[in-house]
Write a protein that binds this DNA or RNA. Structure first.
Lengths: 195, 195
DNA sequence: CATGAGATTTACCGATCGGTTCATCTGCGT
DNA sequence: ACGCAGATGAACCGATCGGTAAATCTCATG
């Protein structure tokens, strides 16, 4: 019970933090929103930062599970999967309450790289990059690590642009760019030849 | 005097906000850091948000001036200038106190698109994109608007990644990707032919 | 039913938040 | 020297911040 209660608190805190930001969401608001008392909250989490770290762990798990699942549903070949990432992003951006990436926002509010919250955010990005690199390797990219980093640049750029400009089609801009990068990074199999 | 005093306040506030973030920098800290009294501060700026907007206006001016100047110093042809943007970014990322993009951070803390702070940040990005599009047009890109948006995606991605991962070489990853995009978007003149 | 351990509630802590009130100080025209 | 306006300083406002102490409730076991 205690564990699942904790999980429920983390889930609700995730919602609130994602919606309103970390600094702007006080413990009192969290307590009011979860129904639990402040003392109970502080029995589960020693400090607010501890709660935030737990939230980021859940977000990391949720997001990476979702993205990998969606990528693998949308396409089968490694090459197509690299592109499918941007279709998945497009679905995410279209969500009613899309509010950018929780880890980018966390690193904006906790800027010191030594801060555990910042470090956890960096680790999330590292794990995602490593996943993309694995696919890039399967796709026979000449330099899978470089390709993965570049696709990630497009992804991060699309994430902040979709939030800042609100414009639709951001993911598609990124996807078209990714296609061009792929054609160059992968000794082409069936990909259309240039000019 | 009054105007330059105001400017000095904005300059010092910019430093503090960039270093510590908007929410984490209270008016008391600002007052202590600028030496001015709280009453004077609130005579120049009706609210904290007004001060932040003034800071963002200054930042927009400073940053766009710096970037365009640096781009035009580093390269002469439009095509090379599009690439030179990433060399300029590299210089920025290497600065000791580099802490990501002020506008991305502002939009992280003020998420509502209707919020003037968020809107001002979006406007900054729009103006930068328009500047890049102008160069892309001069470079005879087939679709200058699309190319500009894609280069901006690489730029935004590089900005957040440089802050989050701290890794060096981020700007170069982006530049290499940009080169490939350029080769595709511009009916090649002297650019190396593919394979 | 008594009791003791754990969880929960209530009330509170000092610090800081954005912002204001009002008394004092400064400098300038007369 | 005087009076006055505008700038300044300090003290203060209620609200909220993250976090805690102590009283109260819950409930399984003897």
């Amino acid at each position: 019970m205690s564990a699942s209660k904790r999980d429920e608190l983390v889930r609700k805190a995730l919602k609130a933090f994602y919606r309103d930001g970390f600094g702007a969401t006080g413990m009192d608001k969290l307590v009011a929103e979860t129904g639990v008392s402040k003392t109970s909250m502080y029995k589960h989490f020693r400090t607010k930062d501890d709660l935030i770290l737990a939230v980021l762990r859940l977000r990391d798990e949720n997001f990476r599970n979702w993205l990998t699942r969606r990528i693998e549903e949308l396409a089968k070949s490694p090459r197509k999967r690299l592109l499918a990432m941007f279709d998945a992003l497009d679905e995410w951006f279209a969500e009613e309450n899309y509010r950018s990436c929780m880890f980018i926002k966390a690193s904006s509010e906790y800027q010191d790289p030594k801060n555990p919250i910042h470090a956890a955010s960096a680790e999330h990005k590292r794990m995602l990059t490593s996943y993309i690199e694995k696919i890039a390797t399967l796709a026979d990219a000449k330099n899978p690590a470089l390709l993965a980093r570049q696709l990630m640049l497009l992804k991060e750029g699309a994430i902040v642009t979709a939030h800042l400009q609100g414009r639709t089609g951001v993911a598609d801009d990124a996807k078209q760019a990714a296609k061009i990068l792929l054609d160059h990074a992968i000794p082409t199999t069936q990909s259309r030849r240039i000019t």
